[in-house]
Simulated scan of single mutants.
Amino acid sequence: MKADNSSAMTAGLASGALVFDQVSKQYGSVTAVDNVSFSIPKGDLVTLLGPSGCGKTSTLRLIAGLEHVSRGRILIGGQDVTRQSAIERNVSMVFQSYALFPHMTVQENVAYGLEVGGARKTEAKERAIEGLRLVGLADFGPRLPSELSGGQQQRVAVARALVLEPQVLLLDEPLSNLDTKLRRRVRDEIREIQQRLRLTAVYVTHDQEEALAVSDQIIVMNKQKVAQQGSPRDLFETPADEFVADFICDANLVAGELQGEACEIGGIKLQLANPRRYRGAVRVAVRPDAMRLRPAAANDPLVGAVLHAAFLGTEMQYTLASPLGELFVRQAEVRRPLAVGSSVAIDFADHGLCVVGGQA
């Protein structure tokens, strides 16, 4: 969903638990967020995904009230919070760096925000204990943060945010300091807690796999704007343009020619599910897993040469030189890898191809 100036869209946005209505943020002549509109339903986890400098962190800070909008409106729970300070908004943030106080115990860290907010010490303690139970750390309250692993410290940071019972939970690159295996486990734990408590959450990451794994919806940002919003499956299978196809799917972008209902790519005619009413010359996104390779024969229409081959345990990854340009291919067959320098026939699967540009 791209930003739209229509009153119909503004009316439709207003039903969300969190609404951005034509929001822009400028620092002097620099635009950090450019006319962004979206709506997040109550209880959904929505990820802001994009490369560095695309505007996703600035958007999160605008939600938190750590920065104020230059134009537009922000609504939380139907209330206009555009001019409210961070402390006036019912949101909590889990920071990339955990931001735990090293001299306080785990329980004291979790209770800290409640006490600052005016809760009695006994109430803050009870809620902190419950928060630690929610994240599976019920027995860790007396410990110092230095006695915990990175994953455990991140769960303490989540508990500290949860006990404040926010309308919106914000997570800023929460797994970036963890190793690969731990990232997978902690992301699953965060998603399970969010779904169990039906929290409305906004999650910022630049990691495509992480976004696909945890999100109800993904908002892909590019050049300070919304490039596309949709479910993980929608974005993966039907990217809106070349940027989304490349960023989400690591897709190969190749030339094709629409001929009625068929699309010819490299001399091979294919039936694509979504030609998007284009005609003539088009750009087609081809996912790396949507190509099939075998040793070339004399009559094969599309032939390439293996430039590079990498064994990754469960798959082979190949870089090919071809008439379509350089192609990146993933193959599940690892027992009989193709040799570097060999000539291979290239064919296409019945999935993983999408028209992303051309003449309407």
Rank of each mutant, 00 (worst) to 15 (best):
Asp4Tyr: 07
Met9His: 14
Gly16Ala: 03
Gly16Asp: 11
Ser24Trp: 08
Gln26Tyr: 05
Tyr27Asn: 04
Thr31Trp: 09
Ser39Tyr: 09
Ile40Tyr: 01
Asp44Gln: 12
Val46Glu: 04
Leu48Trp: 03
Pro51Val: 13
Ser52Trp: 14
Gly55Gln: 08
Thr57Lys: 09
Thr59Arg: 05
Ala64Thr: 09
Leu66Ser: 00
Glu67Val: 06
Glu67Met: 07
His68Met: 03
Arg73Cys: 04
Arg73Trp: 00
Gly77Trp: 06
Gly78Ser: 01
Thr82Trp: 00
Ser85Thr: 06
Ser85Asn: 05
Ser85Met: 02
Glu88His: 04
Glu88Thr: 03
Asn90Met: 03
Ser92Val: 02
Ser92Met: 02
Tyr98Leu: 06
Ala99Asp: 03
Ala99Gln: 07
Pro102His: 03
Thr105Arg: 11
Glu108Ala: 13
Asn109Ile: 12
Gly113Arg: 09
Glu115Asp: 15
Gly117His: 10
Ala119Asp: 10
Arg120His: 14
Lys121Ala: 09
Glu123Gln: 15
Glu123Cys: 04
Ala124Pro: 09
Glu126Asp: 06
Ala128Phe: 11
Ala128Tyr: 01
Gly136Glu: 11
Arg143Ile: 06
Glu147Thr: 03
Glu147His: 12
Gly151Arg: 14
Gln152Gly: 07
Leu164Lys: 07
Glu165Ala: 09
Glu165Gln: 09
Leu169Ile: 05
Pro174Lys: 00
Ser176Met: 08
Asn177His: 08
Arg183Phe: 07
Arg185Gly: 05
Val186Thr: 08
Arg187Ile: 00
Gln195Met: 14
Arg196Trp: 12
Ala201Val: 13
Val202Asp: 12
Ala211Glu: 13
Ala213His: 08
Asp216Glu: 07
Val226Ser: 08
Gln229Lys: 08
Gly230Ser: 01
Pro232Trp: 05
Pro232Phe: 05
Asp234Gln: 06
Glu237Asn: 10
Thr238Asn: 08
Pro239Cys: 00
Glu242Gln: 00
Glu242Lys: 03
Asp250Cys: 06
Ala251Arg: 00
Gly256Val: 01
Gly260Lys: 08
Lys269His: 15
Leu272Asp: 01
Asn274Cys: 00
Gly280His: 13
Val284His: 10
Val284Arg: 05
Val286Asp: 05
Val286Cys: 02
Arg287Trp: 01
Asp289Ala: 15
Arg292Phe: 05
Ala297Ile: 07
Ala298Asp: 14
Asp300Glu: 01
Val303Asp: 04
Ala309Tyr: 07
Phe311Val: 11
Phe311Pro: 03
Leu312Arg: 15
Glu315Arg: 10
Gly325Gln: 15
Leu327Gly: 10
Arg330Glu: 15
Glu333Val: 14
Arg336Asn: 14
Pro337Met: 14
Asp347Gln: 14
Phe348Lys: 01
Asp350Gln: 14
His351Asp: 01
Val356Asp: 04
